[in-house]
Protein backbone atom coordinates (compact mmCIF):
# COMPACT_ATOMS: atom_id res chain seq x y z
CA UNK A 1 0.00 0.00 0.00
CA UNK A 2 1.08 3.55 -0.61
CA UNK A 3 0.37 4.47 3.01
CA UNK A 4 4.01 4.62 4.19
CA UNK A 5 5.05 6.98 1.41
CA UNK A 6 2.70 9.61 2.79
CA UNK A 7 4.46 9.94 6.12
CA UNK A 8 7.76 10.72 4.39
CA UNK A 9 7.75 14.24 5.85
CA UNK A 10 8.22 12.77 9.30
CA UNK A 11 11.88 11.93 8.87
CA UNK A 12 13.03 13.24 12.24
CA UNK A 13 10.55 11.17 14.23
CA UNK A 14 11.99 8.11 15.95
CA UNK A 15 11.83 5.18 13.64
CA UNK A 16 9.89 3.02 16.07
CA UNK A 17 7.19 5.63 16.47
CA UNK A 18 6.80 5.96 12.74
CA UNK A 19 6.53 2.26 12.41
CA UNK A 20 3.87 2.06 15.04
CA UNK A 21 1.86 4.76 13.29
CA UNK A 22 2.05 2.85 10.06
CA UNK A 23 1.15 -0.36 11.85
CA UNK A 24 -1.86 1.28 13.53
CA UNK A 25 -3.06 2.69 10.25
CA UNK A 26 -2.66 -0.66 8.55
CA UNK A 27 -4.53 -2.45 11.33
CA UNK A 28 -7.28 0.11 11.12
CA UNK A 29 -7.52 -0.22 7.36
CA UNK A 30 -7.60 -3.99 7.70
CA UNK A 31 -10.34 -3.81 10.32
CA UNK A 32 -12.42 -1.39 8.27
CA UNK A 33 -11.89 -3.44 5.15
CA UNK A 34 -12.58 -6.79 6.72
CA UNK A 35 -16.24 -7.57 7.15
CA UNK A 36 -15.27 -10.87 8.68
CA UNK A 37 -13.31 -9.18 11.49
CA UNK A 38 -16.12 -6.79 12.36
CA UNK A 39 -18.82 -9.43 12.02
CA UNK A 40 -17.10 -12.03 14.14
CA UNK A 41 -16.43 -9.45 16.83
CA UNK A 42 -20.20 -8.99 17.15
CA UNK A 43 -20.76 -12.74 17.06
CA UNK A 44 -18.37 -13.40 19.95
CA UNK A 45 -20.93 -13.61 22.78
CA UNK A 46 -23.25 -15.87 20.83
CA UNK A 47 -20.46 -18.13 19.64
CA UNK A 48 -19.19 -18.37 23.22
CA UNK A 49 -22.66 -19.41 24.41
CA UNK A 50 -23.04 -21.95 21.62
CA UNK A 51 -19.61 -23.37 22.27
CA UNK A 52 -20.01 -23.68 26.03
CA UNK A 53 -23.64 -24.80 26.07
CA UNK A 54 -24.02 -26.75 22.85
CA UNK A 55 -20.74 -27.94 21.37
CA UNK A 56 -19.06 -28.90 24.64
CA UNK A 57 -22.13 -30.69 26.08
CA UNK A 58 -22.74 -32.71 22.91
CA UNK A 59 -19.05 -33.61 22.82
CA UNK A 60 -19.23 -34.61 26.48
CA UNK A 61 -22.27 -36.75 25.74
CA UNK A 62 -20.33 -38.40 22.96
CA UNK A 63 -17.35 -39.14 25.20
CA UNK A 64 -19.53 -40.33 28.08
CA UNK A 65 -21.19 -42.89 25.82
CA UNK A 66 -17.91 -44.83 25.75
CA UNK A 67 -17.66 -44.97 29.56
CA UNK A 68 -19.09 -47.27 32.19
CA UNK A 69 -21.20 -46.38 35.19
CA UNK A 70 -19.82 -47.84 38.40
CA UNK A 71 -22.33 -46.96 41.11
CA UNK A 72 -21.97 -43.20 41.51
CA UNK A 73 -18.76 -42.90 39.57
CA UNK A 74 -18.12 -43.01 35.87
CA UNK A 75 -15.23 -45.12 34.68
CA UNK A 76 -13.87 -43.63 31.52
CA UNK A 77 -11.89 -46.44 30.05
CA UNK A 78 -13.02 -46.90 26.47
CA UNK A 79 -15.78 -49.43 25.85
CA UNK A 80 -18.44 -50.08 23.25
CA UNK A 81 -20.55 -52.08 25.71
CA UNK A 82 -23.25 -49.39 25.87
CA UNK A 83 -23.81 -49.53 22.15
CA UNK A 84 -23.94 -53.31 22.29
CA UNK A 85 -26.58 -53.15 25.04
CA UNK A 86 -28.90 -51.10 22.83
CA UNK A 87 -29.20 -53.89 20.29
CA UNK A 88 -28.96 -56.81 22.73
CA UNK A 89 -32.10 -58.83 23.30
CA UNK A 90 -33.35 -58.25 26.80
CA UNK A 91 -35.62 -60.36 28.95
CA UNK A 92 -38.23 -57.66 29.04
CA UNK A 93 -41.55 -57.80 27.26
CA UNK A 94 -41.58 -55.66 24.17
CA UNK A 95 -44.64 -53.87 22.94
CA UNK A 96 -44.75 -52.59 19.45
CA UNK A 97 -47.17 -49.72 19.15
CA UNK A 98 -49.28 -51.37 21.80
CA UNK A 99 -50.98 -53.24 19.00
CA UNK A 100 -48.66 -56.19 18.53
CA UNK A 101 -47.06 -57.20 21.78
CA UNK A 102 -44.50 -59.97 21.60
CA UNK A 103 -44.63 -61.55 25.02
CA UNK A 104 -42.65 -64.60 23.96
CA UNK A 105 -39.88 -62.93 22.03
CA UNK A 106 -36.79 -61.56 23.59
CA UNK A 107 -36.38 -58.14 22.03
CA UNK A 108 -33.72 -55.51 22.31
CA UNK A 109 -35.79 -53.11 24.35
CA UNK A 110 -33.97 -49.91 23.35
CA UNK A 111 -33.96 -50.69 19.66
CA UNK A 112 -37.66 -51.54 19.76
CA UNK A 113 -38.44 -48.33 21.61
CA UNK A 114 -36.41 -46.39 19.08
CA UNK A 115 -38.35 -47.88 16.18
CA UNK A 116 -41.62 -47.23 17.99
CA UNK A 117 -40.65 -43.61 18.73
CA UNK A 118 -39.76 -43.02 15.09
CA UNK A 119 -42.97 -44.63 13.88
CA UNK A 120 -45.07 -42.56 16.27
CA UNK A 121 -43.22 -39.38 15.32
CA UNK A 122 -43.89 -40.23 11.69
CA UNK A 123 -47.62 -40.65 12.35
CA UNK A 124 -47.69 -37.39 14.30
CA UNK A 125 -45.90 -35.57 11.47
CA UNK A 126 -48.24 -37.02 8.87
CA UNK A 127 -51.41 -36.06 10.74
CA UNK A 128 -50.04 -32.60 11.52
CA UNK A 129 -49.29 -32.00 7.84
CA UNK A 130 -52.69 -33.27 6.71
CA UNK A 131 -54.46 -31.01 9.17
CA UNK A 132 -52.21 -27.96 8.84
CA UNK A 133 -52.00 -27.81 5.05
CA UNK A 134 -55.64 -26.88 4.40
CA UNK A 135 -55.43 -24.26 7.11
CA UNK A 136 -52.29 -22.76 5.59
CA UNK A 137 -53.99 -22.85 2.19
CA UNK A 138 -57.02 -21.11 3.64
CA UNK A 139 -54.81 -18.41 5.18
CA UNK A 140 -52.78 -17.86 2.03
CA UNK A 141 -55.53 -17.88 -0.58
CA UNK A 142 -58.81 -17.13 1.13
CA UNK A 143 -58.13 -14.72 3.96
CA UNK A 144 -57.79 -11.22 2.61
CA UNK A 145 -58.60 -9.02 5.54
CA UNK A 146 -57.06 -9.16 9.03
CA UNK A 147 -54.41 -11.57 7.86
CA UNK A 148 -52.07 -10.62 10.69
CA UNK A 149 -54.78 -11.27 13.24
CA UNK A 150 -55.37 -14.73 11.84
CA UNK A 151 -51.64 -15.47 11.86
CA UNK A 152 -51.35 -14.37 15.47
CA UNK A 153 -54.38 -16.44 16.43
CA UNK A 154 -52.77 -19.51 14.86
CA UNK A 155 -49.28 -18.97 16.25
CA UNK A 156 -49.96 -18.03 19.84
CA UNK A 157 -51.04 -21.47 21.14
CA UNK A 158 -47.66 -22.89 20.18
CA UNK A 159 -45.97 -20.57 22.62
CA UNK A 160 -48.24 -21.20 25.57
CA UNK A 161 -47.07 -23.79 28.03
CA UNK A 162 -46.66 -27.13 26.29
CA UNK A 163 -46.86 -28.92 29.63
CA UNK A 164 -50.29 -27.48 30.32
CA UNK A 165 -51.58 -28.38 26.87
CA UNK A 166 -50.47 -31.98 27.32
CA UNK A 167 -52.03 -31.94 30.76
CA UNK A 168 -55.29 -30.68 29.24
CA UNK A 169 -55.43 -33.80 27.06
CA UNK A 170 -54.86 -36.03 30.08
CA UNK A 171 -57.85 -34.32 31.66
CA UNK A 172 -59.92 -34.74 28.50
CA UNK A 173 -59.14 -38.40 27.83
CA UNK A 174 -58.84 -39.61 31.43
CA UNK A 175 -60.90 -42.41 33.01
CA UNK A 176 -62.87 -39.90 35.04
CA UNK A 177 -62.13 -37.16 32.54
CA UNK A 178 -64.06 -34.72 30.40
CA UNK A 179 -65.09 -37.06 27.58
CA UNK A 180 -66.08 -39.96 29.80
CA UNK A 181 -67.94 -37.84 32.34
CA UNK A 182 -69.55 -35.88 29.54
CA UNK A 183 -70.78 -38.99 27.78
CA UNK A 184 -71.99 -40.53 31.03
CA UNK A 185 -73.89 -37.45 32.10
CA UNK A 186 -75.39 -37.27 28.62
CA UNK A 187 -76.53 -40.84 29.13
CA UNK A 188 -74.71 -42.21 26.10
CA UNK A 189 -72.51 -44.64 28.00
CA UNK A 190 -72.83 -46.27 31.42
CA UNK A 191 -69.23 -47.15 32.15
CA UNK A 192 -66.23 -44.93 31.44
CA UNK A 193 -64.32 -45.84 28.29
CA UNK A 194 -60.90 -47.04 29.34
CA UNK A 195 -59.30 -47.13 25.91
CA UNK A 196 -59.03 -43.35 25.60
CA UNK A 197 -55.99 -42.75 27.73
CA UNK A 198 -52.66 -44.52 28.20
CA UNK A 199 -52.05 -45.77 24.69
CA UNK A 200 -50.14 -44.65 21.58
CA UNK A 201 -53.23 -43.06 20.06
CA UNK A 202 -53.56 -40.69 23.00
CA UNK A 203 -49.90 -39.74 22.52
CA UNK A 204 -50.37 -39.14 18.82
CA UNK A 205 -53.51 -37.04 19.37
CA UNK A 206 -51.83 -34.92 22.03
CA UNK A 207 -48.65 -34.37 20.03
CA UNK A 208 -50.56 -33.61 16.85
CA UNK A 209 -52.48 -30.96 18.71
CA UNK A 210 -49.27 -29.60 20.23
CA UNK A 211 -47.54 -29.14 16.85
CA UNK A 212 -50.53 -28.06 14.82
CA UNK A 213 -50.14 -24.36 15.48
CA UNK A 214 -46.45 -24.50 14.68
CA UNK A 215 -46.68 -26.30 11.35
CA UNK A 216 -49.14 -23.93 9.69
CA UNK A 217 -46.65 -21.10 9.48
CA UNK A 218 -43.86 -22.52 7.28
CA UNK A 219 -46.44 -23.97 4.89
CA UNK A 220 -48.29 -20.67 4.81
CA UNK A 221 -45.09 -18.79 4.00
CA UNK A 222 -44.25 -21.02 1.04
CA UNK A 223 -47.83 -20.78 -0.26
CA UNK A 224 -47.82 -17.03 0.12
CA UNK A 225 -44.61 -16.79 -1.91
CA UNK A 226 -46.20 -18.41 -4.96
CA UNK A 227 -46.65 -15.88 -7.72
CA UNK A 228 -50.39 -15.69 -8.35
CA UNK A 229 -49.86 -15.28 -12.07
CA UNK A 230 -48.44 -18.83 -12.17
CA UNK A 231 -51.81 -20.12 -11.04
CA UNK A 232 -53.58 -17.99 -13.61
CA UNK A 233 -51.20 -19.25 -16.28
CA UNK A 234 -51.96 -22.85 -15.31
CA UNK A 235 -55.71 -22.20 -15.57
CA UNK A 236 -55.18 -20.41 -18.83
CA UNK A 237 -53.32 -23.43 -20.18
CA UNK A 238 -56.31 -25.61 -19.39
CA UNK A 239 -55.80 -27.00 -15.87
CA UNK A 240 -58.85 -27.57 -13.73
CA UNK A 241 -58.68 -26.31 -10.16
CA UNK A 242 -57.64 -29.69 -8.82
CA UNK A 243 -55.06 -30.29 -11.55
CA UNK A 244 -53.73 -26.82 -10.94
CA UNK A 245 -53.38 -27.54 -7.24
CA UNK A 246 -51.58 -30.82 -7.85
CA UNK A 247 -49.32 -29.53 -10.64
CA UNK A 248 -48.49 -26.02 -9.43
CA UNK A 249 -49.53 -25.17 -5.88
CA UNK A 250 -48.50 -28.38 -4.15
CA UNK A 251 -45.04 -28.72 -5.74
CA UNK A 252 -44.24 -25.06 -5.15
CA UNK A 253 -45.28 -25.27 -1.49
CA UNK A 254 -43.18 -28.39 -0.87
CA UNK A 255 -40.25 -26.50 0.68
CA UNK A 256 -42.59 -25.28 3.41
CA UNK A 257 -44.05 -28.75 3.92
CA UNK A 258 -40.61 -30.33 4.10
CA UNK A 259 -39.38 -27.70 6.55
CA UNK A 260 -42.44 -28.05 8.74
CA UNK A 261 -42.21 -31.85 8.65
CA UNK A 262 -38.63 -31.83 9.86
CA UNK A 263 -39.31 -29.29 12.57
CA UNK A 264 -42.12 -31.50 13.86
CA UNK A 265 -40.55 -34.91 13.31
CA UNK A 266 -37.11 -34.44 14.85
CA UNK A 267 -38.11 -33.13 18.29
CA UNK A 268 -41.05 -35.56 18.45
CA UNK A 269 -38.83 -38.64 18.29
CA UNK A 270 -37.28 -37.59 21.59
CA UNK A 271 -40.60 -36.68 23.22
CA UNK A 272 -40.80 -37.17 26.97
CA UNK A 273 -43.64 -35.16 28.55
CA UNK A 274 -46.58 -36.38 26.49
CA UNK A 275 -45.82 -40.12 26.56
CA UNK A 276 -45.27 -39.88 30.29
CA UNK A 277 -48.57 -38.08 30.88
CA UNK A 278 -50.90 -39.86 28.47
CA UNK A 279 -48.97 -42.80 26.99
CA UNK A 280 -49.03 -45.41 29.69
CA UNK A 281 -46.74 -48.38 29.19
CA UNK A 282 -47.84 -49.10 25.63
CA UNK A 283 -47.36 -45.51 24.56
CA UNK A 284 -43.90 -45.25 26.08
CA UNK A 285 -41.23 -43.61 23.96
CA UNK A 286 -37.44 -43.50 24.01
CA UNK A 287 -37.41 -40.15 25.81
CA UNK A 288 -38.79 -41.75 28.96
CA UNK A 289 -36.00 -44.32 28.93
CA UNK A 290 -33.36 -41.66 28.47
CA UNK A 291 -34.81 -39.70 31.35
CA UNK A 292 -34.80 -42.71 33.64
CA UNK A 293 -31.23 -43.63 32.67
CA UNK A 294 -30.20 -40.19 33.84
CA UNK A 295 -32.52 -40.38 36.84
CA UNK A 296 -33.55 -43.43 38.81
CA UNK A 297 -31.71 -46.03 36.71
CA UNK A 298 -28.58 -43.90 36.97
CA UNK A 299 -26.67 -45.17 34.00
CA UNK A 300 -25.46 -42.06 32.25
CA UNK A 301 -23.08 -43.71 29.78
CA UNK A 302 -25.87 -45.97 28.52
CA UNK A 303 -28.25 -42.97 28.43
CA UNK A 304 -25.70 -41.02 26.39
CA UNK A 305 -25.28 -43.90 23.97
CA UNK A 306 -29.05 -44.25 23.55
CA UNK A 307 -29.38 -40.49 22.91
CA UNK A 308 -26.60 -40.50 20.35
CA UNK A 309 -27.94 -43.51 18.49
CA UNK A 310 -31.33 -41.81 18.41
CA UNK A 311 -29.83 -38.60 17.00
CA UNK A 312 -27.78 -40.54 14.47
CA UNK A 313 -30.73 -42.58 13.22
CA UNK A 314 -32.92 -39.48 13.02
CA UNK A 315 -30.22 -37.61 11.10
CA UNK A 316 -29.88 -40.47 8.62
CA UNK A 317 -33.64 -40.60 8.15
CA UNK A 318 -33.79 -36.86 7.61
CA UNK A 319 -30.99 -37.01 5.03
CA UNK A 320 -32.76 -39.84 3.23
CA UNK A 321 -36.00 -37.87 3.34
CA UNK A 322 -34.35 -34.77 1.90
CA UNK A 323 -32.74 -36.87 -0.78
CA UNK A 324 -36.09 -38.39 -1.71
CA UNK A 325 -37.99 -35.12 -1.76
CA UNK A 326 -35.07 -33.84 -3.80
CA UNK A 327 -35.35 -30.43 -2.31
CA UNK A 328 -32.26 -28.60 -1.29
CA UNK A 329 -33.93 -27.19 1.72
CA UNK A 330 -32.36 -24.12 3.17
CA UNK A 331 -32.65 -23.16 6.78
CA UNK A 332 -33.58 -19.74 5.44
CA UNK A 333 -36.90 -21.04 4.20
CA UNK A 334 -37.85 -21.76 7.75
CA UNK A 335 -36.44 -18.56 9.08
CA UNK A 336 -38.65 -16.13 7.31
CA UNK A 337 -41.61 -17.72 9.00
Amino acid sequence: MAADAISSGAGQEPRAQRWSIVLCRRLRAWYLGSDAARGYLLLMPTLAVLFALLVVPVATLFLTSFCTQVYFKIDCSFTLANYATIFEPSGEVGYFLGIVPYPEMETPIYAVLLVRSIWMAFLVTLSVMLLAYPMAYFLAFRVTRNKIRWLILITVPFWTSYLLRAFAWKVILGYGGVINSGLISAGIIQEPLSFLLYNPTAVIITLTHAWLAFAVLPIYVSLEKIDRSLLEAASDLGDSRIERFLRITLPLSMPGVVAASLLVFIPTVGEYVTPTLVGGSSGKMLGSVIQSLFGQANNQPLGSAVSLVMMLVVTLLVCAFLKVTGSKLKAREVQDA
Partner: peptide, 13 residues
Protein backbone atom coordinates in the same frame (compact mmCIF):
# COMPACT_ATOMS: atom_id res chain seq x y z
CA UNK B 1 -34.24 -29.25 16.05
CA UNK B 2 -32.59 -31.26 18.80
CA UNK B 3 -35.09 -32.89 21.16
CA UNK B 4 -35.01 -30.86 24.36
CA UNK B 5 -34.40 -33.99 26.36
CA UNK B 6 -31.03 -34.40 24.67
CA UNK B 7 -30.12 -30.77 25.33
CA UNK B 8 -31.21 -31.34 28.93
CA UNK B 9 -29.11 -34.42 29.55
CA UNK B 10 -26.14 -33.09 27.63
CA UNK B 11 -26.12 -29.94 29.74
CA UNK B 12 -26.72 -31.95 32.89
CA UNK B 13 -23.78 -34.26 32.20
Amino acid sequence: VIPFIILGIALLT
